[in-house]
């Protein structure tokens, strides 16, 4: 191989190694975030019965409302996948479109969640009411905080794709973002089940 070809092959190999390294590191971070949520779930599991004479989940949660939220988030996870497929094809418009839909659905989820929080707080069932409500708001709220960060990140990435196209760094970051967004829906599976379904059971 000529010197230039050798050099290019080296650079490509190094870049691929770098990408593999970064994506693995981000995966490791996601695993740690799972432990974060696990601690919050453990706390919720222990405290969910401590209503301090107040109402429990069965009385407070509206299951149809939660189902709509869940479908919004689940669909956004799906459309995020579609955005990634488009990005792999370097299809700028499609990527932006699917990211936009993902963002909209994520925003719907967040607004619905905040609305529910607001309603609970106004009724006197805020996070100060009992151990149950403290753990509920913190678990679900932490998920909501992650969603918020995801929305901000998504907006920043989408604009970078639109303005600068598909650089290697942007593709890598899109991969990381989609990992993050899918992970948030996976956590929601458990919130949906343990907080809302089991709460109503």
């Amino acid at each position: 191989m000529s010197d230039i070809a050798t050099n290019n092959a080296t650079v490509l190999a190094e870049q691929q190694t770098n990408d593999g390294k970064t994506l693995f590191g981000f995966w490791a971070y996601i695993m740690t975030d799972c432990l974060l949520f696990a601690s919050l779930f453990a706390t919720y599991a222990v405290l969910h019965g401590n209503t301090a004479g107040g109402e429990s989940g069965r009385d407070l949660f509206s299951l149809p409302y939660i189902l709509v939220e869940t479908f919004a988030l689940l669909t956004s996870s799906f459309t995020c996948g579609l955005a990634m497929l488009a990005a792999n094809r370097h299809a700028k418009r499609q990527t932006a479109l699917w990211l936009g839909i993902t963002f909209a659905l994520g925003l719907v989820f967040l607004v619905m969640e905040l609305t529910e929080f607001g309603r609970l707080a106004r009724e006197g069932n805020g996070w100060q009411r009992s151990g149950f409500l403290s753990s509920y708001f913190t678990l679900v709220g932490t998920h909501g905080l992650h969603i918020t960060i995801g929305l901000v990140w998504m907006a920043a990435l989408a604009s970078r794709v639109w303005l600068k196209g598909f650089t290697r760094a942007t593709l890598r970051r899109l991969s990381m973002f989609s990992l993050f967004w899918h992970f948030l829906d996976i956590v929601w599976i458990f919130i949906f089940t343990i907080v809302y379904m089991l709460g109503a059971a």
Binding site: T6, A9, T10, A13, E14, Q15, Q16, T17, D19, G20, L23, G81, M84, L85, A87, N88, L171, R172, S175
Partner: peptide, 19 residues
């Protein structure tokens, strides 16, 4: 070539895997 690490990832993005 010594620089090529044995851990080179051949698909940085899940090209083959995602469909």
């Amino acid at each position: 070539m010594e620089e090529v690490s044995s851990n080179v990832v051949h698909a940085t993005l899940p090209r083959k895997q995602a469909s």
